[in-house]
Design a protein around this nucleic acid. Structure first.
Length: 303
DNA sequence: AAATCGGGCAACCGCGCGCAG
DNA sequence: CCTGCGCGCGGTTGCCCGATT
């Protein structure tokens, strides 16, 4: 038995919203707030499903929404976060004031994923397409014979000369990368906003769980915690795919054998995540230009 | 000028989760 | 513990409009 419909579909209007409907919804929400969406249509005098009202409000009518084009900084942010989170649009949108998950999702699907492909980067794994092709052992599709312009071409699916592709030193298998990505998502899902981070928490470092990792000696500072996310992003193959977004110190994360180390790290993180404001952590991370600029002064993934 | 194509975007759909009774 | 309900999310659809033929 399926779930009953949230409203009487026969008596509910669908399709584009009219200015009159927008005005009614806006008037109601500004006077009464949002509250229970299922009752909003009736109270606001709308023949719409409550769900439709919520969507219209959150994606279009909500105050402080940005309706202008995405900036280069926002693009960089989306790409960086997508490398870390995958298609968790709501989490990504949370880091972009004035943008909705629908905005981000549409922009990704229509613009950014194509841009990445044009640069020889797989928009799902954020790894060079040439490398993925090698990984899956197929030679069915080859780059154009000339392959002259690495980043200059805009039309080929394989514009990047393999010789110029960012070198991958970690050699992490694809499934392992996905596993790591899931762990990053797990960390962020365990978000406990508003709770001050414990100083002790910052001593928990990804590198501590890696055998023979020289970086394990790194001081227990907030920067080190941010580094965990940098490294995690690298582990999922994201950052390195579009250039040296982070410095080379994270490159040694990969290689075989750290699955258990990674799990131990995640377990430890989950033990203490309740003490941690992950949103703030991400905000701090992303406020640091060094994260996605690799210390440079301009964007390194895109144009 | 008309027809066709393709991109962009708003909106819908279905599912999962959390909460209350 | 079970069930019903509301909310939020991600995936998908369909319409609109500009570009191209």
């Amino acid at each position: 038995m399926g779930r009953p419909p949230c409203c009487d579909k026969a008596n509910v209007k669908k399709g584009p919203w009219t200015p009159e409907e927008d005005a009614k919804l806006l008037a109601y929400t500004s006077n009464h707030g949002t509250g229970n969406w299922t009752s909003v249509p009736q109270r606001a005098g709308l023949k719409r499903c409550g769900k439709s009202c919520r969507l219209r409000y959150t994606n279009y009518l909500r105050p402080n929404l940005k309706h202008e084009n995405f900036t280069q900084e926002e693009e960089d942010l989306i790409v960086t976060l997508h490398a870390m989170l995958g298609s968790r649009w709501s989490l990504i949108a949370n880091q972009l004031p004035g943008r909705t998950d629908n905005d981000v999702k549409n922009y990704w699907n229509t613009k950014l994923s194509k841009k990445l492909r044009q640069r020889g980067i797989d928009p799902i794994t954020h790894r060079p397409i040439t490398e993925l092709m090698q990984s899956i052992g197929t030679l069915a599709i080859r780059p154009p014979p000339t392959a002259a312009g690495a980043s200059s071409s805009t039309s080929s699916y394989f514009p990047m000369n393999p010789a110029e592709a960012p070198a991958f030193q970690d050699n992490v298998p694809y499934h392992h990368a996905l596993h790591q990505q899931q762990q990053v998502i797990t960390l962020l899902d365990a978000d406990a906003p508003g709770v001050a981070a414990s100083p002790d928490h910052h001593q928990l470092k990804w590198s501590d769980f890696l055998a023979d990792d020289a970086a394990a000696l790194e001081a227990a500072t907030p920067q080190a915690v941010l580094g965990q996310y940098q490294e995690a992003a690298v582990a999922v193959g994201g950052a390195r795919a579009y250039g040296d977004i982070v410095d080379g110190t994270a490159a040694d994360l990969g290689g075989g054998g750290e699955d258990s180390a990674g799990s131990a790290f995640i377990d430890a993180m989950l033990d203490s995540d309740k003490e941690m404001g992950v949103d703030q952590l991400i905000a701090d991370l992303l406020a640091d230009p060094a994260y996605y600029y690799g210390g440079g002064s301009s964007s390194t993934w895109g144009c």
